[in-house]
């Protein structure tokens, strides 16, 4: 743990933040995300969980927005505001967990495919290309239909189907890093695979992975809502996708209950757009090729 290296990294992080701040879209996205995460974490403290229970629902079904229910009620007479509030927890949980899984697999496959030559790398590349081409939603649907329904099934289904783009990115970046002279120097000094990857490749690849991660969270949240909408989600918890599914299957949409439809959908759009803005801003800061064009 040499201190100059850490000092250098701290300076780099500060520079990154300074440049990130100049990107207005990214900054707005970051603030919105922070607010949503804080609210979602504090949901049990701010609101009353019993309002989610179908049996103890107090309102009349499909009531338009009023002073008592700001966003109206759903088919069971529950407050749509409360449902949307709690839905954020499932969406964020699945979004983050699936992203961690997906980025982990992607980074591992990418680095291994680039670092080791010969047939293991060829096979990994072939497999990556295969999964890249395959429609990931169709595969995720297949996986979650054969496994037991639940939040973690969804996480698994999204995580193991969305890693190929990360793997491609990491592989390309690893290849450029490994062609540089300092890697050759480390090799000449007797550095093993673990040393090369851990000390040199990984730190250089991680910034790009970070930018990619924020984009993956956004698409994971959309994938979660899509799977829940198709009825593959956890039947016991409320998520934005399952709210929209109920809205369609119960006939609330044909009845014109816009207050039931707008909040969960807008919530998805806002959260995914925020992640996209932050991810693009990070990419602009971290990717020298994009920066030169500005």
């Amino acid at each position: 743990m040499t201190s100059p290296a850490w000092q250098r990294r701290r300076t780099a992080a500060r520079d990154l933040w300074r440049e990130f701040r100049t990107n207005r879209g990214g900054l707005v996205g970051l603030c919105v995300l922070a607010a949503i995460v804080v609210l979602a974490v504090l949901a049990p403290l701010i609101t009353d969980e019993s309002g989610l229970d179908v049996i103890s629902a107090t309102g009349t079904p499909l009531q338009p927005p009023s002073g008592e229910y700001w966003l109206g009620t759903d088919v069971d007479g529950r407050s749509v505001l409360l449902l949307t509030f709690w839905g954020a927890r499932v969406s964020l949980l699945v979004g983050f967990a699936a992203t961690v899984l997906s980025v982990f697999i992607g980074t591992l496959v990418g680095i291994v495919a680039a670092h080791f030559q010969g047939w293991p790398s060829a096979v990994l590349l072939r497999v990556t290309d295969f999964f890249l081409v395959l429609p990931s939603l169709v595969l995720a649907i297949a996986l979650s239909s054969v496994l037991t329904k639940g939040v973690w099934t969804i996480v698994l289904a999204i995580g193991v189907t969305s890693w190929p783009s990360t793997a491609r990115l990491v592989r390309a970046q690893t290849l450029t890093i490994e062609s540089r002279p300092y890697i050759e120097r480390a090799k000449a000094l007797g550095g093993g695979h673990a040393h090369l990857i851990g000390k040199h490749v990984l730190p250089a690849v991680l910034p790009l992975v970070l930018a990619n991660t924020t984009l993956v969270v956004g698409s994971s949240i959309i994938a979660e809502s899509t799977l829940s909408f198709l009825g593959l989600g956890d039947p016991t918890s409320v998520s934005w996708g399952s709210m929209l599914q109920t809205a369609l299957s119960s006939g609330a949409v044909t009845a014109g209950a816009w207050w039931y439809l707008l909040p969960p959908g807008l919530a998805i759009v806002v959260i995914v757009l925020s992640f996209t803005l932050v991810g693009r801003a990070l990419e602009t800061v971290l990717n020298p090729r994009l920066k030169a064009g500005r």
């Binding site: 809502s225 899509t226 909408f229 996708g241 929209l244 369609l248 998805i268």
Partner: peptide, 25 residues
């Protein structure tokens, strides 16, 4: 970019509700 962040089925539901009866559902 905004449309890119929209779940397709939600957009479909919105169109359904916005055009109430103009087009077959």
């Amino acid at each position: 970019l905004t449309l890119w962040s929209v779940p397709q089925f939600w957009l479909g539901l919105l169109l359904l509700i916005a055009t109430q009866g103009l087009f077959p559902s």
